[in-house]
Design a protein around this nucleic acid. Structure first.
Lengths: 200, 200
DNA sequence: ATAATAAATATTTTGTAAAATATTTATTAA
DNA sequence: TTAATAAATATTTTACAAAATATTTATTAT
């Protein structure tokens, strides 16, 4: 491995940086391959040595977003000194904050996510599965600590996801004011936590 | 009031019948005023004596849907012999079934609802407020019977709405299989009901 | 007057050719 | 050979005229 030469992965990353900045700002449709190439000081044709096509660059950008989000969520789970209840609340709230911020900073991200949802639904599904596992971990921890009393952990994780979907779905994020969504997210997760606990 | 002549309301209804059938089948965009008029044996121009424009006919169609739905939901609340818990579950499930059926029977209704959501958001909001009141009634009844222990009834009604939104939002209804949504709706409402009950 | 229509006009949609852009291929450089 | 480019080609978007449709107005009938 030469020290001064760029590796393929480095170039891929450079392309992704450029594409992400443009896609988030101007959208997938209004960004040209030529522009991305110029930002990377290369020809448009050369992009195809690193990605099969524009759509896949879009998908890779979305993936980067998603991975960032997942890292954040995994981090919450590992945070020491939090009860399972606190972790669950933090999980839902920080996810909401993070999605909200991303859409504020990169207004055209919405378009990108909509596209992925339409064309690469399997990516979305895989992510949901991944987050379901994280939620399941929290539930298992809560069961052990006596905070929760959940029999089917995976199913319950899926139910929690469904109940808070509205707080990370782009469509709703863009339709309601921040305060309202924030308050409701807090309220819903509190209600769910009550439901997860032991009966009298 | 003449016995043989149509009242204005009757004509309005006739127009709505014709429009609803076409909008639900072919969508707002692919239905012309001329077609609706023909179905009613009148000229296109004459439609404007009963509705200000095509969009408002669309809104009136949506309203009819909504009112039907609300009647169904009010009916559930009055159903004798059901506990508040059963009413809440029925409320969420039947609403889901009803929306699902409507979209199955009238595939282009989706387009209409999307349009209303975009252009006449206040209509959607008014409806949600109305349904919130119905939920609040159920909660109050549950409080009285000892099934629930809810302090802020209106706020909690709003939280329940948020948590089950995914089961009546057109976008999700069209993206996931019936079985999955049905199971999750049942699961979520069960979880919420647990959360509404008295603590140990 | 009221209800309706047909004709006139305004607006939107559609079809399509030109332009822009994505992608592939041929060529050059290291 | 690998990396890159420029040129060639395929595909998509745009611009805009023609056609369709929505809406208004003038006219007729009751």
């Amino acid at each position: 491995m030469k020290t001064m030469e760029k590796t393929v992965d480095e170039v891929r990353n450079q392309i992704l940086d450029a594409a992400f900045a443009r896609f988030g700002q101007y959208g997938l449709g209004k960004t040209t391959m030529a522009e991305i190439a110029k930002d990377c000081d290369m020809s448009a044709g050369n992009l195809y040595r690193y990605y099969p096509n524009k759509a896949d660059i879009g998908a890779a950008c979305a993936m980067r977003c998603f991975n960032e989000m997942d890292a954040l969520l995994r981090d919450i789970i590992k945070r020491p000194g939090l009860t399972a209840t606190e972790k669950l609340k933090t999980f839902v709230l920080e996810k909401f904050y993070h999605v909200y911020e991303q859409f504020s900073e990169q207004p055209k991200l919405y378009e990108l996510v909509m596209y992925i949802q339409q064309e690469k639904f399997d990516i979305i599904q895989a992510r949901l599965k991944g987050q379901q596992s994280l939620l399941a971990e929290i539930l298992a921890e809560g069961n052990r600590s006596g905070e929760f009393d959940v029999s089917d952990i995976l199913e319950t994780a899926s139910l929690i996801q469904a109940a808070v979907t509205i707080f990370n779905a782009p469509h709703f994020i863009n339709s309601y004011p921040f305060e309202k969504l924030e308050d409701e997210a807090k309220g819903v997760v509190d209600l769910l936590v009550r439901g997860l606990g032991k009966r009298s």
